[in-house]
Design a protein around this nucleic acid. Structure first.
Lengths: 343, 343
DNA sequence: TTAATGTCTTTTATCGTGAAAAAACAGTTT
DNA sequence: AAACTGTTTTTTCACGATAAAAGACATTAA
């Protein structure tokens, strides 16, 4: 069960211990891009919480300055940026400090247009769980993560440079994706991104999407979803025309399209299940760039046919178009899974 | 929207605040059975972890003493009770202390049969998450928990007498049941055990179980599941005969039966989804005792018909029997949901 | 030499704590 | 009076610390 010739370059797998069950257990380490990432030091006291909410909202707030000569009220800004007034006031305070606005009670006059260096760096705006998820998924997909391996909370936390609580909470949330499993009072076990996983995932996906699609087609004329569908159709047409240069924008469009369809099921379990699919496809797209252009070109065409079928309200056509697209989506996913031996 | 005459005894709902959206948000409080439960005090330092694993294993270990005159090796005991050797040794130490056994290295001789007071009290053997779950579900089902209410981690933690971390982790785990939802950077919202919930749940259940049932019927002759099915059939027959007195044992049998069928799908998402159903039915059975005997009597008969259909391998019969049972299960669930008004 | 026991180390489960962010309250302005 | 700003309180998020439990290593008995 040795890995390829590069096995020596990733030295920190624990020695496998023989188990009663035939599964050999190893540990899942995260290989960090360039040495150990050391977050937050030299603060003396353990820093409790990063202010990424503020930083992210600040960056988004800067973009508002381009458009107007004065900002709206604090509560309005709050809804606009999706944060509380407390955070809005922190943002305004900094905007005043850096000379972007003049702030006096109700008047918030824009003094200058933001420069690139006014923005907080991207990586400081990420949620902790996003950081953890990325590290974890990189490790999972980069290879070297064999089914049956142990996942060690403490080790993960240390390697990513975060507290154990955050890692635990991440793993609990992540467990619903079916890739890991907890042993009571003990470690997590990696079930792995295997062929079996992909097949089980797509089985459910097909079941759910076929049902959602026929529910969609049965929706009344005056339902707002038809307008949404028209908009998405336009976007697909546009993308199809410029596919040579914009093929990497498909992933995002794909998700919006399928979510729209799933929402027609009016079933929270179906809608929520799309999170699993979206997660898998998100990382899969990032990782497997082979024939990306061709794959996406085909998919866009399939989507357009699927949309046409929906608009026809002909359940037979919908079923056929949906099946066809899901089949090729499954094949793309399956071919991207390395693996040769699986019982 | 006042609750019944006992409303005054549960005084601590927060005043509802009017919201932009028409949903009135209230807070979900837990009404504890007899005043506030104060766990762990007077220890000075915050106690980190209860030793319920030890206590539960100890209790189960006591039952072994009835059967033999001497206990097996430590590792063997470990696998038997499902705990580590460390815990086994703590157990043995106490058994020696209380004069239950004589322990010297490999020899562990039973000196006397355990008395009732040798056992740790039941409530000390519960997991923290079980405690939290019970409190939470009681509140949910006892009424007074309206959709749209806020769930406050801190408040829950204080009322149950546990740390916030445990409550957070519970809520994250619980969220996959579709009854609550998190607002980013803010509180949880109760979606409620509504008619809509029950319908969405049963829709998926029916989809999954029909598929599992036909997969089951298609299993080869020599598959071990047929033996399992035979055993379950016997248990059903036995229960049917003594239904007058043992009707409350059905719930557990029901779960085992359906899990066996779902396992035939060989799909982790289908198998895992049964957790949602089991959870709902578990609390539903506890709460709704109306016509319990009659309901269970009918269900046992339906199960037996279902089992016969499976054994016939006739897919048409399987489908019909499965549909029939699921339909009456859905009706039972639906009639137990109070609620009059739902948009 | 295998499988147990005895001992030591590591990991998990849980708490209290503190900063970030939200929410509530109180006072102003229009 | 409605909507805003200013201020205070509460809650969420994340950390380090610690006892329980698991796991690894060392030693001994069969």
């Amino acid at each position: 069960m040795r890995r390829g010739p590069d096995a020596g370059t990733r030295p920190d797998f624990r020695k496998a211990i023989p188990l009663p069950g035939s599964l050999r257990q190893k540990h899942l380490h995260i290989a960090l891009q360039a040495g150990r990432r050391k977050r937050r030091r030299a603060t003396g006291q353990g820093m409790s919480k990063s202010n990424n909410v503020y930083k992210d909202a600040y960056n988004r707030g800067l973009r508002l300055l381009d458009e107007t000569k004065s900002l709206p009220s604090e509560p309005e800004l709050g809804t606009l940026l999706g944060v509380s007034r407390t955070t809005i006031r922190t943002i305004l305070a900094r905007m005043e400090e850096t000379g972007l606005i003049a702030w006096n009670k109700r008047s918030k006059t824009v003094l200058r247009v933001p420069r690139p260096d006014d923005f907080f760096p991207e990586e400081e705006t990420d949620t902790l769980s996003q950081i953890i998820e990325r590290s974890f998924m990189r490790r999972l997909l980069v290879g070297g993560a064999e089914p049956g391996m142990q996942i060690n909370e403490l080790e993960l936390a240390r390697e990513i440079g975060v507290g154990t609580t955050s890692v635990r909470e991440f793993l609990i949330r992540f467990s619903r994706f079916g890739l890991i499993e907890k042993r009571r009072n003990s470690h997590w076990v990696l079930k792995g991104f295997t062929r079996a996983f992909a097949l089980e995932l797509t089985e459910i996906r097909e079941m759910f999407e076929l049902r959602s699609a026929s529910a969609f087609a049965a929706l009344p004329e005056d339902s707002p979803v038809w307008a949404d569908l028209d908009l998405l159709e336009d976007e697909h047409r546009l993308l199809a025309r410029e596919i040579a240069t914009r093929f990497n924008e498909f992933s995002e469009l794909d998700e919006r399209f399928h979510r729209l369809i799933h929402r027609a099921s009016h079933n929270r379990f179906i809608v929520d299940f799309y999170d699993v699919i979206a997660m898998i496809f998100h990382y899969h797209y990032q990782w497997n760039k082979a024939q990306e252009r061709e794959r996406n070109e085909v998919a866009v065409a399939e989507h357009l046919a699927y949309i046409a079928a929906l608009k026809s309200r002909d359940l037979g056509k919908v079923d056929a178009a949906c099946r066809k697209h899901l089949k090729s989506a499954r094949n793309t996913l399956l071919t991207s899974i390395p693996e040769g031996q699986q019982p």
